[in-house]
Design a protein around this nucleic acid. Structure first.
Lengths: 159, 159
DNA sequence: GCAAAGAAACCGACCATACGGTATCTTTAT
DNA sequence: ATAAAGATACCGTATGGTCGGTTTCTTTGC
């Protein structure tokens, strides 16, 4: 989070996993492979959470957008500690992660074109991204009360 | 843009400036100092553009937000090539740059509290951030037509 | 039931490389 | 003459990755 992917060392990862560097590289052929594996794992979890969220939503229109917003705010509340923080930041500096994310998003958008293709919904999603970003930029994150207010405001936009 | 601040080497900067590394370090005592100097310079230019924009705005309410949006979209149109792209990305991975940006934003918000302290305006600004982010994430940037539409839509939100 | 064989997990030492930074010398302008 | 600008050479360090070997688990043959 503080030094980007360049600051992430295999030794640090290995230590955190109580393994030696050699052991770590046995499972992941390279640093890049390791990073992408973690990223893919997180993307999958995001998918699952969004699907779960959508199932609990009665309204048709904007159901994906609401799930998207909820997912982001849930993660946002964890602040800088969340693995999402580091990964999403890295997503900017690594071209390959960038396309992975971009592809994920595009597929999801196409899939929900029927219910979520509306300018207002788009704005709501972008705003969620912006809030998420601001929360990372701010040293201690945005105040929880503020976050809650923004969340309901955004979700109202989707109705 | 592709490798973050860790991937930025003094040698590369020196080469681009047609100077040797020693020559470069004569002007900037360290890599960090160089980066912060560039960042400060960009922040100042942003300030100037926003002020210029606000002067041309008749309406009081939301004038800062509109200037902010315009500034972001202007830079966004330059895509990944813009110095802003790399710098704003780096802004995430470097704690010090992060506080610089955070402080800049807070000061600006306080200064325009009279005219721009409204939930809808906040959403508009966050959405601008999100669009800017999406534009960087997308490999080739968002289509100009789409960007234009989003821009007018956002600015309508401020009125 | 069990030992031999094979594979997967893991370790530790090592290497080439490239980085940021320092110290010293040379050129250029005033 | 002097000081700023710039160049050259070099150093310590830390990184990603390789490689040969060792331990631990799993499968196989009888």
């Amino acid at each position: 989070m503080d030094q980007g992917l360049g600051g992430l060392t295999l030794r640090a990862v290995a230590d955190a996993a109580s393994v030696t560097k050699g052991g770590l590289l046995h499972h992941f052929p390279s640093k890049q492979a390791l990073i992408e594996a973690v990223f893919q794992d997180l993307l999958q979890k995001l998918d699952e959470q969004i699907d779960r969220s959508m199932n609990e939503d009665d309204r048709e229109r904007g159901s994906f957008t609401r799930a998207y917003i909820d997912a982001f705010f849930e993660v946002t509340s964890e602040g800088t500690e969340s693995p999402w923080a580091a990964l999403s930041i890295s997503c900017m500096t690594d071209p390959h992660l960038r396309t992975l994310w971009s592809d994920w998003m595009q597929k999801r958008i196409e899939r929900h074109a029927e219910t979520d293709d509306h300018p207002d919904l788009k704005i709501a999603r972008y705003a969620a991204d912006g809030i998420w970003l601001a929360n990372l930029t701010e040293t201690n994150g945005l105040p929880p009360k503020e976050l809650a207010a923004l969340r309901t405001q955004l979700k109202n936009l989707t109705k």
